[in-house]
Every structure is written in structure tokens, then in C-alpha cells.
Design a protein around this nucleic acid. Structure first.
Lengths: 237, 237, 237, 237
DNA sequence: TATGAATGAGTCTTCATTCAT
DNA sequence: GATGAATGAAGACTCATTCAT
């Protein structure tokens, strides 16, 4: 990541192979987008940080929107690869989940800019960017859901389990994202502790669910509960 | 909420008392900000959606930044009031949490624009806006943490319970936020179901925690786990 | 002058006779124009200082340009009257000049705002305002020139004396204006001293001129002097 | 100076080296500011007169205020240099003063726009602009005062001579400024004649002052003179 | 009559984007 | 290939001016 080029260029930039230039530019772009947000980031600043002129910026990576989309795609790929690389596929589900969580928090901790761009900036712009992100999320949720489904003891068959597992996976992913955000703003705790808390909360809660230990409101209140926002009695799993 | 006025005005706007106009404008502003984000939203569009001219917009609500801040504050207040109104203070902690969650998801479901502005837009802008939001979060987390602390069975005394409870509360709030986001993008399930899942996950996991049932990685793997991201062995609660 | 009304009005302005209202408004306008200049002064501020609403401002005194022109005319008239009132017409020319100067500096000292509007603001706006001012100057110069012409000892007849006297009068008026400006920026000396210096400089120099005591460059240098900016050898009176 | 470019541009402006463009723009800016004043001048008009687009105007010379300040500084420097260039430092004081006056009027005659900007516009705006001008004036007054002090016959010693000389210098400078203004509005006389009149008036009056020939009001009137505007009896030098 | 409420028009300023060298 | 120079288009904000009550 990040601007090994001096911020103030002197003279004409050296000719570099296309791939290197492109990486250089995208590193700069991610840094600037994460720092300022999509709109407040200017192509001027990006080109300056990248150490090239604006016409080059356009020649290499197209319009501002294209550049942003490319950044999102690259960072999303990097993150997915980091997680995939961290997970040990031959281990039992709980270990897989745990190693995935660790890899996720590890990536976020070491690539703050990437995470900011992915989570905060991309989702707050409308349109194609948010969709790109939704895809990423979808894939992540799918993977987690698969893990849960293969865990021993899950209610048999994909009868209703699919829906349930996906929903839980979504909760886990969402919680992970938010915890990551929260962690960036409160960085005093090490990544492992944060990951462990989430692991505990989810895995134990999940175990209870599987075991049929569900919470439900005091029985005498159930009726009126329902009417409030429509079908809101906790369906107990 | 939102744009009962036609998008294209014809002729001079009728004279209205100040308070009414102000609400009209803020409704429009929330809608536009939530749809386009702070930067991409233009005062021109807001005034058009509000059915007034730009000078009125400025006369009533000041600069774009002031307007945005005012929107955030109003929506935050509305949400907090909705939740406070939903919680029954004389019930046991679990029921309180449950009613709070229901109220939260109920509000988000009925005020999508408000939620988008609060969660996605406000936090992706830097500076005062994000701080305003951080305050709101902080208060919410504090309330939830208090609930957990008062729940029967929690390790007595403020030895480590305060920190633990707050951390769990943060996780819950974060999970709630993210679930709400996810739910808006996947609205096929009713609010009550989503709320119930979160309730189950959290309350049961919390119960396990209190009871000392924690997950931990297979013992033989612990050593190398540690080195990876620094102190990442789950500290078991 | 100026703003006996409170700057912040409460309730509806009392009905007043037109003349009184008009004076009130113009006092406010002169104050604001002098403080901010024509362009930077806003009708909003003027109406606020005047203690009336903008529609009234327009009803009474027309557009901003009309208001400014009216201000200039009123202040010019006031100043001319103050001077005319100060001059004793039955005295010899030097005494008349002296009393005129005293009256002028007295007026400027007691009516700074008027002077600022007349001298600094009116002349820096183009078009009709500057013309209005040129008229005022023209009249002042004419009066002074007449004084000089009637002074005993002036080269007889209006042969060339008219031109000469007018030119000197212009110099005097100009010097007076500039001194007044300078004096406002350096108010430590009393008006009388400033007036006296100007009186001495002019009257004694004038006496020399009349007596034929003129300065001229060292004779050997005269030729090249001429060529520089065309006919610039001092014509010695 | 001034708009060799057609007022209406067609097509893209040719590429020019930075220094040339900058001068072109400042010439246009001086012309427009002098014609319309700071506030009434629009960046649109300046860029049009300069023959470039507005973004270039901003790229080269910054904000409107910066542009105005830069204009003032440039024109002040040009004028000071023209005068310094015109003065012959080895000549006696009277000749120096004379050549300085000629140079001043020569500059004003050939650079009307510069003079308007310096004298009328800069001083009628408040703040930093007026201060910049006050500096210029201060320097000019200092130079003239030094000349007077070195003239033979001035009361020796800095007993009161310094104050007196400076005061006279201020009067001279003020008179010069105003005469220049007046001359621009009445341009029928050549610069040399105007300069000569001022030279005569000042130098002879100054000689009288030095010689102790002062005007004073008829003795019987002195008492009441005083009371009028406070200490206004001419203090005789 | 007196005014709160309203607006068309314009100003400064910036940005993504592209020629011409 | 690389860039300094250039611009169309748009956005925030303000002001003189006027209805409608």
C-alpha cells in the first residue's frame, strides 16, 4: 500500500512497466479515498500522491468512478484472499471459523485504508459501488453459512436450516464488520481479543440454538408482543 | 416524511408558518442525503424536493453542513425516543432488551431514510458528524451495558464485569446496526424475526459466558495461534 | 446622525410622519454605507439599523442606488450649508477662507460618516455617483476661486487670472480633502491645527505667487526638463 | 497594459509561458478593477478581458482578494520605481522634489488605471488593502519629509522640525494625490503645468514658513476663533 | 400601513476531464 | 510516453427586490 513515492515530484517520472505504475497509482488512490471519501478526494491529489501527472492517471485507470470501482475490487479481492489463505480447510468447522475471524481482523488491522474504503466509503456511495460491496458480503455470508451447515448437530437437512444458517451468518458478518469499525476507533485491544469475543458470542449462541435452548418472552406477554411490528414473536430458532 | 410536494414546483410557494416549513425542508433533506450522501446531495436538489427556493433553504437552516448536522440530530433524537418509548422499564432485563430491539428494528423499518442518514452517511463523513454519531452510539452502548450488568447471574462486583459488559454491549449494538443494514438490503423477513434472531444469539451467548461456557481452540494449536496477530488466543470471556 | 433606534426591533414599528421616517432611514443608510461601502452594504442591514422592514425601506426611498444617491445629495448639502454658515461674507478674503476652512474641518470632524460616504465611497463607485461628487467639488472650487480673485493684489482682470485662480482653488480643495482624510486616520491633532497649516501653506504660497516670487528650476537644466513630459517647465504663475 | 485580446474569445487560448499569462491577467485585472471597483468587478469579466477561462485565473492568481492585493502591490511598485527613477539624487532638494513631482504626474498620466486602482479603489476597501496603501503613503511622506529637512534654511535640530516637516510632507502628498485625481477629471492641462503649480505653492509656502512669515487672523478675532473647534488658532508654523 | 416570507439572478470557487507540446 | 496548460460545468451561497397577509 501507500505512497512510497515522495509526495512532491521533481522532474519527469521514470518510465515504468505498466503493472508497476498501476499498482502505484491504486495504492495512492486507496489511501486518498480512505482518507477523504469518494467525493472529497480529488484526482489532483491522487495524481500528486501517486507521483504522476493527471493525464497519466486517466490513461492508466480511466475516470474517477472507474478508478474507485477498481480500487474496491482490488481491495475486496485482497481481503478475500487473505481470509481464504488464513482458513485451514481440513479442520473442523469451529476451527475454520476461528481462523477465518482471525484472518479477517488481522487484515483489517494491517490494512486500515483498504477496510475504510471497502466498508465506509463504498457503502455510502449509492449505485454500482454499493452493489459491488453487496456481492462481497454475499460471498462472505455464503461461506460462513456453509460452515455452519456442516457443523455437526445442525438441524438435519436443508429444509429450513439453509435460511436459518444464512441468517446467522449474516448476523455474524455484520457483527464482524461493525466490530472491526468499532475496533479501529478503539484500538487499545489487540486483534485477537476482539476476534475471540466475537467467536465466543457466536459459537456459543449458535450451539445453544442448535441444542434448542432459545430465549422467549414470558409467556403471558406473547400475544401483545406479536401485534406490534408484525410477526415479531421470536420464533425460537 | 418525504416529498409530498411535487418535484417540480410551479409558481410561488404558499406562505407557511416557520415551523411547518422547517419540518418540510428537513424531511426533504433527510430524503436526499440518504439517497445521495452528503457530498453528492446538492442544495439545489434539496430545495427542489422541499418545494421552496434555495434562499429559503438557507434562511431557515443555514449552510449545507449545518443542515446536515441538524438532520442527524433530529433523526438521532427521533430514534432514541422511539426506542425509549418501546422499552418497558419495569420488566426484567431480558424483556427490556427484547423490547428495545423490537423498537429499534421497528424504527429502522419504518424510517429507512433516517437510518441511512444516521448510519451510512453520517459515519462516512469525518469530523463533527461522525462524532455526533459516536455520541449516540456511546449512549446506546451504555444503556445496553447497564442492562447486562443488572441481569441476574452476572459476575458480581465491578471487578472486570464493567469492561466485559461494555464490550459485549458494543458487540450487540454493532451487530444490531449491521443487521439493520443487511435487513434493508434483504427486506423479505419481518422485523420481528430479525430482532428475535439477534436476541437469541446475544442472550444465549451471554448466558453461556456468564456460566463460564466458553469456546477455545483445540489445545494443541494454541501456541502458533498466538504468534499470528499478537495475543489472539481467545481469553475465554 | 445615526441610529437612535435600537438595532434589534421588537414588534411593529410605530407610525411616524413621513419626514421623520425618512430621516431615520437615511441616517442608518449613511452609517452603513460609510462603514461598509456601497457594495458591501446590504439593504438587510440598513433596514435593520433603521429599525424598519425592508418593504418600508423600498417604499420610502426606492432602490439601493436611489438611496445611495439620496444620501450623497443630503450629505453634500449638509456640508455645503455648514461651510456657508461658517463663512462671514463681510470679512476680507483671507478671513473668509480661514473661516471656511475651519468650518470644513469642523464638519468633517463631527460627521465622519458623512465625509466617508461623500469622499471615499461616492468617488470609488463609477457612474452617476462620481458625477454627483464632481458637481459638489466644482461648486466648492468655484467659491474658493472667487475668493482668491477678489483678494487684493491679484493680477488684474480675469485675463489669465481666472484659470490660475481656479487651478489654485482646485489644489486647495484637493489638499483639504486629502488632509481631512489623513486627519481622520491620524486624529491626534486638533482640527484647528490642521486647518491652520493648510491656511498658512496656501495663503502664503498664494501671496508669493501674487507677488511674482516663483520657484523655477536652475536655468541650465530647463531645456531637458521640458522634453520629459511635455511643456512641464513651471510656467511661473 | 489593457486588453489587446478581444473581449470575446473564440476557442481555446493558446499555451503561453506562465510569466506572460500572469502579466496578461494582471493587466486585465487592473483595468477592470479600476473601471468598476473591487466589488463590482467580477472574476467572470476579468477572465474574459484577460482572454482566458476562470479556472486559469484562479490557478494563476488565487482568489479575488489575492488578485486585488497582487494588483495593488504591483502597481504600487511600478509607481515607486517610476518616481525613484525620475528623481536625481545628486541635485539640491528643490530640484529633487521637482523631478519627483514630474515623475509622479507623468506616471499618473500614463497609467490612469493603475492610479485609479491605487488611490480610489484600494483606499475605499477596508482592511488589508487600505493598509497596504497606507504603507505606500507613509514611505512617500517619509521621503518628502527628508527632502524638506535637508533643505537649507530649515530650523536646525530636530527640536520641532521633524514633526513640522512630516506634517508638511503629508500635506504635499495629499495635495498631490488629490490634484492627480482632479487632473484626471480635468485633463486639459499638461502634466508639467499641474506639477509646477503644486511645486510653486508648496515650495514658496514652505520658504515662507521657514522664514517665519506666517498668516494669522486679525488679532481682535483670535479669542472666539479658539472656542469654535478647539485650539484652532493657527499656531504659526 | 407594515411585514414575514419568498425568489430570480448572479458571484466566487472547484473539479473532472482533455488538448497541444 | 508524459505533461503543463486549459476549460465546461456545476455547486455553495448571497442579495436586491417583491408578494400576500
Amino acid at each position: 500500500m501507500h505512497a512510497e513515492q515522495p509526495a512532491v515530484r521533481t522532474g519527469r517520472a521514470k518510465r515504468l512497466p505498466r503493472a508497476v505504475r498501476e499498482r502505484q497509482i491504486m495504492d495512492a488512490a486507496v489511501e486518498v479515498f480512505s482518507r477523504l471519501g469518494f467525493h472529497a478526494a480529488s484526482m489532483d491529489e491522487i495524481s500528486e500522491v501517486a507521483g504522476i501527472s493527471k493525464p497519466m492517471l486517466y490513461a492508466y485507470l480511466g475516470s474517477k468512478e472507474e478508478l474507485f470501482a477498481t480500487c474496491i475490487r482490488r481491495e475486496a479481492t485482497r481481503m478475500m484472499e487473505a481470509i481464504a489463505h488464513g482458513v485451514e480447510p481440513d479442520q473442523p468447522p469451529d476451527v475454520q471459523l476461528w481462523s477465518g475471524l482471525r484472518a479477517f481482523f488481522g487484515f483489517v488491522g494491517e490494512n486500515r485504508a483498504s477496510w475504510q474504503v471497502l466498508h465506509r466509503q463504498a457503502s455510502s456511495q449509492g449505485g454500482p459501488f454499493a452493489e459491488e460491496l453487496a456481492d462481497l458480503r454475499g460471498r462472505a455470508i455464503g461461506l460462513v453459512a456453509a460452515l455452519l451447515l456442516h457443523s455437526s448437530g445442525f438441524p438435519d437437512g436443508p429444509r429450513d436450516g439453509g435460511k436459518e444458517a444464512e441468517s446467522l451468518a449474516a448476523a455474524l458478518v455484520g457483527a464482524g464488520e461493525s466490530l472491526a469499525d468499532w475496533w479501529l476507533d478503539n484500538p487499545e485491544e489487540p486483534a485477537g481479543v476482539v476476534a475471540a469475543r466475537l467467536m465466543n458470542l457466536v459459537w456459543m449462541g449458535f450451539g445453544d440454538l442448535v441444542a434448542g435452548n432459545v430465549w422467549h418472552p414470558p409467556s403471558r406477554r406473547a400475544p401483545e408482543v406479536d401485534t406490534d411490528i408484525g410477526g415479531s414473536t421470536p420464533p425460537a430458532g
